[in-house]
């Protein structure tokens, strides 16, 4: 089954490609913004310390950021799921391109993440995509991150976040915040993949979405296949963005409740 059919996105995607008024915060790696399947998209850069466009197209950060951006905002004619190309994608890079190795899911410190969340909220994001894990957690920094999530709650900004790929039972400082929607990765039959973290909090407040053998954009024009909870998150983010495009007067609580019902 096609991933967008599995989560019943197909009809919604036929109704709309999204509205540019709906801004999506993408806190990830930088994006290959000159990619031919992305240049038609509504990409807006919010630069942190790093630029929003890739400087090294073969870096992990660029590959990851470009793939997730493609799931959300590629042209509908591209091989990527391309859920909501007419929504505005706010690119807020958080991963450095200098990271070596092939990490499955890039990581950020809680302080860096909190700063990026505040930036996205201030730039008018309605929904934020967190396809990432946390590194070096500390109590003080976690408090700052909680404040960022609380700000998102008070401003009605929804947050979809990766459950994590350790194959463990339990939640993180990200997924245990009650406003955050944790996303588990499933295969194309709807069963959770082995690597996906699960748990009672995740099971109660979260959603499952396709995260196995997903075809998407590579940073250098090639086609990539990726999996994991990182890849599952933008299916939820994209669904939220399309729903809000169709129902612009709906509150964040209404959108969230409709998804959880």
């Amino acid at each position: 089954m096609h991933p967008t059919e599995l989560v019943k996105l197909t009809r919604l995607m036929q109704r709309t490609q999204g509205s540019s008024d709906i801004r999506i915060g993408l806190i990830d790696g930088p994006v290959a913004t000159s990619h031919t399947d992305l240049t038609n998209g509504h990409l807006q850069e919010i630069s942190g310390n790093n630029g929003a466009s890739c400087t090294r197209n073969n870096s992990n950060a660029c590959l990851h950021g470009t793939f997730i951006a493609g799931v959300l905002a590629a042209r509908r004619t591209s091989p990527a799921p391309a859920i909501c190309p007419d929504c505005t994608l706010l690119i807020r890079p958080i991963f450095s391109e200098s990271t070596s190795g092939r990490e499955h899911m890039p990581s950020a410190t809680p302080q860096e993440l909190a700063g990026a969340i505040f930036d996205c909220i201030n730039a008018g994001a309605r929904v934020i995509n967190l396809s990432l894990a946390l590194a070096q957690p500390s109590t003080r920094e976690e408090k700052l991150l909680d404040e960022a999530f609380n700000r998102a709650l008070s401003r009605g900004v929804l947050i979809a976040a990766a459950a994590g790929n350790q194959g463990m039972l339990g939640s993180s400082v990200i997924t245990r915040h009650p406003w955050v929607i944790p996303v588990v990765a499933c295969d194309l039959r709807g069963y959770p993949i082995n690597e996906s973290n699960l748990g009672s909090t995740i099971g109660t407040r979260g959603l499952s979405a396709p995260g196995d053998n997903i075809t998407g954009l590579g940073a250098e024009g090639q086609i990539l296949t990726m999996g994991g909870t990182s890849v599952a998150v933008p299916f939820v983010t994209g669904a939220i963005a399309l729903l809000w495009s169709q129902f612009p007067d709906a509150t964040a609580a209404q959108i969230k409740l409709a998804l959880m019902s």
Partner: peptide
């Protein structure tokens, strides 16, 4: 629900719910 596995995203059901609320 009491499960460690969350339900599958169902965008169409969410659309139906919102279309009855926001007419």
């Amino acid at each position: 629900r009491g499960s460690v596995v969350p339900p599958l995203l169902d965008a169409e059901s969410a659309w139906q719910i919102l279309s009855t609320v926001n007419t």
